[in-house]
Amino acid sequence: MIDHDRLFKEVLTTFFEEFILLFYPQVYEAVRFDDVRFLTEELYTDVTVGEKYRVDLLEIGKES
Rank of each mutant, 00 (worst) to 15 (best):
M1E: 08
M1A: 10
I2H: 07
D3N: 12
D5W: 00
D5R: 05
L7Q: 11
L7C: 02
F8Y: 12
F8G: 00
K9M: 04
K9S: 08
K9L: 06
V11R: 06
V11G: 04
V11S: 06
V11Q: 10
L12G: 05
L12I: 13
L12Y: 05
L12C: 03
T14I: 05
T14C: 03
F15K: 15
F15R: 06
F15V: 02
F15L: 13
E18K: 14
F19E: 09
F19K: 07
I20R: 04
I20Q: 03
L21G: 07
L21W: 07
L21C: 05
L22C: 09
L22K: 10
P25L: 10
Q26L: 13
Q26D: 15
V27W: 11
V27D: 15
Y28W: 07
E29R: 12
E29L: 09
A30V: 02
A30T: 10
V31H: 03
V31T: 06
R32C: 14
R32A: 09
F33D: 04
F33Y: 13
D34N: 14
D35I: 00
R37W: 04
F38R: 11
F38D: 06
F38I: 05
L39F: 12
L39R: 10
T40P: 01
T40G: 14
E41A: 06
E41Y: 02
E41T: 08
L43R: 11
Y44D: 07
Y44P: 00
Y44R: 04
Y44H: 09
Y44G: 06
T45G: 01
D46W: 01
D46C: 02
T48D: 13
T48E: 11
T48K: 05
T48Y: 02
V49P: 00
V49Q: 06
G50N: 01
G50P: 01
E51H: 03
E51K: 14
K52H: 05
K52T: 15
K52L: 07
R54M: 10
R54S: 04
V55I: 14
D56C: 05
L57G: 01
L57F: 03
L58T: 13
L58P: 00
E59Y: 06
E59I: 12
E59Q: 10
E63Y: 02
S64G: 10
